[in-house]
């Protein structure tokens, strides 16, 4: 039981963290609340499904190709639909919801509403420190952790990362330092979408695919972002861990009440917000832009 809770928390938490990090990246740089963020996650799942089940590709190349495809789609959406609207914050909100709905309906039309599944890379299970884990879970978790670490390095140890963080703080000042902010924003949109797609591609073998699968993770990552503090990578990871833990607790401790997992996580979020309005790791600064 405890082991199950732990494993589920780790796998879900890592996936949530990745989604949340991507979401807060593009929010930070572009001040864009991209509600279509988890739609990319769904698209990646379906893309893998098509490539593996229909085109007959192996899982790993299918995954790489899916991430690439989804990123290209996302960048196109960003350039054509979101970027020109950036000054209209609420319009961006609607456009991204509508985009997510468009993707959902397209998937519904081409794949139908049934649940689909994707084969994994590895069969069987292994035991780590006496805990039984399926190989697929172990691999997924490890890869997610590696990607998260890579993102952290990208943001904190590279020139591009510095530019991203500077742009997120003050776009005009970044501009004056010779940073091409619109290019940086586009690249950030690409990285953000790629993270979402990678999360989708990695957890696809563990989950079932269905066209509405974007809505639940969306509310969850919004809760995580608020919990962890907006624009804080560390916060996103801790927030994801908390939410994933509370979810698995609900699922395993009250199996008949597993429909409550979303409500329970959100309740935790609200309680945290009451105590710390800027989130666990947010910095309360009077910002000016």
């Amino acid at each position: 039981m405890l082991a199950n809770i732990l494993v589920t928390t780790l796998v879900n938490g890592a996936a949530y963290a990745m989604l949340a990090v991507g979401f807060s990246l593009i929010f930070g740089v572009g001040r864009i609340i991209n509600l279509a963020h988890t739609a990319y996650y769904m698209l990646a799942g379906y893309s893998i499904f098509t490539l593996v089940r229909v085109a007959g590709l192996a899982y790993v190349p299918a995954m790489a190709l899916s991430i690439l495809l989804v990123t290209v789609v996302a960048v196109l959406c960003y350039k054509l639909l979101i970027d020109p609207m950036r000054e209209h914050e609420t319009t961006v909100l609607i456009i991204t919801i509508a985009l997510a709905l468009v993707f959902q309906e397209l998937m519904l039309k081409y794949f139908g509403g049934h649940f689909r599944s994707v084969p994994g890379v590895a069969e069987g299970s292994l035991s780590i420190l006496g805990v039984q884990v399926t190989r697929q879970q172990a691999i997924t978790c490890a890869v997610l952790a590696v990607i998260l670490a890579a993102v952290w390095l990208l943001l904190h140890r590279t020139r591009f990362g510095l530019a991203v963080r500077a742009t997120a703080q003050d776009m005009e000042a970044a501009n004056l330092m010779g940073m091409d902010v619109s290019r940086i924003a586009t690249l950030t949109a690409a990285v953000s979408a790629a993270l979402s797609a990678a999360a989708g591609a990695l957890v696809a073998p563990l989950n079932i695919l269905e066209p509405h699968m974007w809505l639940n993770p969306l509310t969850i990552i919004l809760a995580i972002i608020v919990l962890g503090g907006m624009g804080s990578i560390k916060g996103s990871i801790y927030g994801a861990a908390i939410i994933a833990l509370s979810e698995s607790l609900v699922i395993f401790l009250i199996p008949q009440g597993s429909f409550l997992k979303g409500a329970f996580s959100l309740l935790i979020m609200i309680i945290v917000l009451l105590i710390r309005p800027e989130g666990l790791f947010g910095v309360a600064l009077e910002g000016e832009r």
């Binding site: 929010f27 509310t219 919004l222 809760a223 608020v226 979303g262 409500a263 959100l266 979020m269 917000l273």
Partner: peptide, 13 residues
């Protein structure tokens, strides 16, 4: 944005 995201939670709860 914190406010908007928090308000999202209430109907779900």
């Amino acid at each position: 944005q914190y406010l908007s995201l928090a308000t999202l939670a209430f109907p779900i709860i």
